[in-house]
Simulated assay, not measured.
Amino acid sequence: MFQPRGRLLAPGFIDTQVNGGGGVLFNDRPEPEAIAIIGRAHRRYGTTGFLPTLISDRPQTMARAIDATREAIATVPGVLGIHLEGPYLNLERKGIHPAASLRVPEKDAFSLLTGLGQAGCTLVTLAPERVPPGFIRQLSEAGVLVAAGHTAARYEQVREALGQGLRALPICSTRCRR
């Protein structure tokens, strides 16, 4: 059995919410070079796979982040896809997200959120009560992993969302009421 002396041998971490690192915030610099800096900063601490995470922003910034991630998947070690945290969140549970960036899905939201295609994983965090009926199912069927977050959804709304393909319920940001 291999026993490294004075070192720890362990599997790498996978981080699904990486907003920044190395002095760079992804929202401020949605570009491949920024993702590379962020990746290097996290790799030092054992993260071998990650999703650059963009918090609620304008559609143009989201599109730039998706394009940057597509390029980074091919060139930056460990980039597994993208996490779009918002902008379809509940204002009551916005946390750090800018209120001015929160909105309901616009008519081209589906094509934007599925823009990474098969290049990598797309994780979208949204508030189920802020999206139209069938939207979660449509995203899920297109291969997007949908998570509930920053939500004030009622129990029935979460149950409905689960039936449509919602797959993740982060405890820290979800509160369900009956």
Score class of each variant (00 low, 15 high):
Arg175Phe: 09
Gly95Val: 09
Leu123Cys: 08
Ala41Pro: 13
Ala72Met: 11
Asp108Phe: 04
Thr125His: 09
Cys172Met: 03
Thr75Arg: 15
Leu166Asn: 04
His97Trp: 05
Gly46Cys: 07
Ser140Arg: 02
Leu54Trp: 06
Ile73Val: 09
Cys176Met: 10
Arg130Ala: 06
Gly81Gln: 03
Tyr88Arg: 07
Tyr88Glu: 01
Ala119Arg: 15
Leu25Arg: 15
Val76Met: 06
Ala147Tyr: 02
Arg177Leu: 03
Val144Leu: 06
Arg137His: 04
Thr122Gln: 10
Met62Cys: 07
Ile96Tyr: 13
Thr47Ile: 09
Gly86Pro: 14
Arg5His: 04
Pro59Cys: 09
Ala10Thr: 12
Glu106Ile: 08
Leu126Thr: 06
Phe50Leu: 14
Gly78Val: 07
Leu91Gly: 00
Gly165Cys: 06
Gly86Ala: 04
Ala100Ile: 08
Tyr45Ser: 09
Gly86Arg: 11
Leu102Trp: 15
Thr61Arg: 15
Arg154Asp: 01
Arg7Ile: 00
His150Glu: 05
Ala153Val: 09
Arg137Val: 01
Thr75Val: 04
Pro170Gly: 04
Ala168Gly: 00
Ile96Arg: 14
Ser56Arg: 14
Ala41Ile: 00
Leu80Asn: 14
Thr174Glu: 03
Arg7Ser: 03
Asp28Thr: 09
Leu25Tyr: 09
Lys94His: 10
Gly143Asp: 03
Gln157Ile: 02
Glu129Thr: 11
Ala109Met: 08
Leu84His: 02
Gly117Asn: 08
Glu85Ser: 11
Gly21Thr: 05
Ala161Pro: 13
Val146Trp: 08
Phe135Leu: 09
Glu156Asn: 09
Asp57Tyr: 14
Leu8Asn: 08
Glu85Lys: 12
Gly117Ala: 02
Leu80Pro: 02
Val144Thr: 13
Gly78Met: 05
Leu80Gln: 07
Phe13Ala: 03
Ile82Ser: 04
Leu113Gly: 06
Leu9Gly: 07
Gln60Leu: 01
Gly86Asp: 00
Gly39Phe: 02
Phe50Met: 15
Ala72Trp: 09
Pro30Ala: 01
Val76Asp: 12
Ile14Glu: 03
Ala74Asp: 13
Gln118Asp: 05
Phe110Asp: 08
Leu112Ala: 02
Ala142Trp: 11
Glu141Tyr: 13
Gln138Met: 09
Ile82Gln: 05
Arg177Phe: 12
Thr61Trp: 10
Leu25Thr: 10
Glu160Tyr: 13
Ala100Met: 07
Val24Met: 08
Gly21Trp: 13
Ala34Asp: 07
Pro98Ala: 00
Leu169Tyr: 12
Ala74Phe: 07
Gly81Glu: 01
Val124Ala: 07
Cys172Val: 12
Ser140Val: 02
Leu116Gly: 11
Ala10Glu: 04
Glu129Cys: 12
Phe26Ala: 00
Ile96Asp: 04
Ala142Val: 01
Ile82Gly: 08
Arg137Leu: 06
Ala148Gly: 15
Arg44His: 01
Ser101Ile: 01
Ala100Gly: 03
Pro30Gly: 02
Arg93Phe: 11
Ala161Leu: 08
Val124Cys: 02
Leu51Asp: 05
Glu31His: 13
Leu166Ser: 03
Gly23Asn: 14
Arg64Asp: 00
Arg167Ser: 05
Thr47Tyr: 10
Pro4Arg: 14
Ser173Gly: 06
Phe2Ser: 13
Leu145Met: 11
Cys172Leu: 08
Ile35Asp: 06
Val18Leu: 06
Glu85His: 15
Arg58Ser: 03
